[in-house]
Amino acid sequence: MTVQQLTEKLNLKIFSGKKGLQKNISGGYVSDLLSDVMGNANEGDVWVTLQSHKNVMAVASLKDLPAVILVKGIIPENDTIIQSNEEEIPLLGTTDSCFEITGKLYNLIADNK
């Protein structure tokens, strides 16, 4: 499943990083501690978080994550948007809570396997 398909299926807002919409998603990871994501996320995981700091995009790039989903209607900071565009990693948004979006995401990824 591509990031583009994911945004359509889960009705996600695309803040930035549109050039990366054809990246492939193979799994997911949920965490708000960037150190934890650096240590434990796998390549191909879409990352669900409430952290909107620009370091999020650097960590996503480091770990080869195809996209980041910000929960609860959180609006990213400007420099995070800039970095998302530079890294070509889509920064997505939902008004769902972390629990809700992760449930939907899990089912979608499981169905696609």
Partner: peptide, 16 residues
């Protein structure tokens, strides 16, 4: 520290 520090929360020192 593993909690409430730059490293745990942000992974590394932001350049600004």
């Amino acid at each position: 520290r593993p909690r409430f520090g730059i490293l745990s929360q942000l992974g590394f020192m932001p350049d600004d």
